[in-house]
Simulated scan of single mutants.
Amino acid sequence: MLLAIVPILLVSLALSTATPIVYDGRARFNLTNADLESSTGPFLTVVKGSENATHYSSLLGHTMAPTPLWSEGLLPIQPTEQVISITIDNSSIFIPGGGSPQFGFRRTEFIAAVNGDHDDLNLVMEVNTTVFHFSIQKDEKRPLNYSHEYQVVFIEPNDGSHVFEIQLGSPFTDPSGPLPVADAHSLKVLDHALNTLFNAPFISDTWHNFAVVIDWSDKTLAVWYSRNADLLQLVKETTPNPTTPTGSDGQGDFHFGVLKLPLVNPEDSPANQSDVVHFGIQEGTIEGLLYSGCSWKVLFMV
């Protein structure tokens, strides 16, 4: 296994370009809000409500420093990307193509793409062993409601499952238990079967850096994590992810953003109470997260 053979290699790869980057989703300074509107560049911005993409997302320019893991130069350290703000509000009701409005969810997500093409990108980045990098920070002006479940980073095959997932808040249950749950304020890395592989307190004013390693052939996951400028550390050794569908059925789009699940509405019918996509309670508040450092590398190891 990759991590058993070369445990130090991945840390250096996280900070270097020795291994080719097959997808670079870091928002360079020439990326504009107009590009977000048109899904030009490294993202599709179509998973949103009825307003324009820039109603729910924005590029922060030089007003906020991105994760320092990707900075270049010594004195001074020069950022190479902009922070991305992604938010939801009560209009964040997504209508999938050919589907019905998802009234139960509030969601705004970016999908990894190259100038609008995500299908071909998936075939390139979801082979062999892939390292998925991303960094997350709280949006202090738009706090989350931790009584709800939030799915904020995931790879979604066609069956709607997630190869892996970063979760915040209180997992949806029907009926609802005591809320929020004890670890609601922690970032949790889940496998395909929703087992928790790692969790870390979601500390304020801090970049939470992740590298999730997926071996697509052996169907395994490993997790690396750090805060701010600290080097990534192995926090979950290579572990089986056996319930992931095999081959192309297990491949899918990479999403990052804010997907907020509802609370059970006691006035709904029993069948509707379990339909998290279309029913449930949402407060309609403005909530958000900040993202930086999104890129993936494919490792060709023997």
Results as ranks from 00 to 15, higher is better:
Glu126Gln: 15
Glu126Gly: 11
Val127Asn: 12
Asn128Leu: 15
Asn128Ile: 06
Thr129Glu: 09
Thr130Glu: 11
Thr130Ser: 14
Thr130Phe: 06
His133Ser: 13
Gln137Ala: 12
Lys138Asp: 13
Lys138Thr: 10
Glu140Cys: 08
Lys141Asp: 14
Lys141Tyr: 08
Arg142Glu: 11
Pro143Asp: 06
Tyr150Thr: 04
Gln151Trp: 07
Val152Glu: 12
Phe154Tyr: 10
Ile155Ser: 14
Ile155Leu: 12
Glu156Ala: 11
Asp159Phe: 04
Gly160Pro: 00
Ser161Asp: 04
Ser161Leu: 01
His162Gly: 03
Glu165Arg: 07
Ile166Thr: 06
Ile166Val: 07
Gln167Trp: 05
Gln167Met: 07
Gln167Ser: 09
Leu168Gly: 06
Gly169Lys: 00
Ser176Tyr: 15
Ser176Cys: 14
Pro180Arg: 00
Asp183His: 07
Ala184Arg: 03
Ser186Ala: 15
Leu187Thr: 06
Leu187Tyr: 14
Ala193Pro: 00
Leu194Val: 11
Phe198Lys: 01
Asn199Phe: 04
Asn199Glu: 09
Pro201Ile: 06
Phe202Lys: 04
Ser204His: 11
Thr206Pro: 05
Thr206Lys: 03
Trp207Pro: 12
His208Pro: 03
Phe210Cys: 02
Val212Met: 15
Val213Phe: 13
Ile214Trp: 11
Ile214Cys: 06
Asp215Pro: 05
Ser217Ala: 13
Asp218Thr: 10
Thr220Pro: 01
Thr220Gly: 03
Thr220Met: 02
Ala222His: 12
Trp224Lys: 01
Trp224Cys: 03
Tyr225Trp: 02
Ser226Asp: 03
Arg227Trp: 01
Arg227Cys: 01
Asn228Val: 00
Ala229Lys: 08
Leu231Lys: 10
Leu231Gln: 12
Leu232Met: 12
Leu234Cys: 14
Leu234Gly: 08
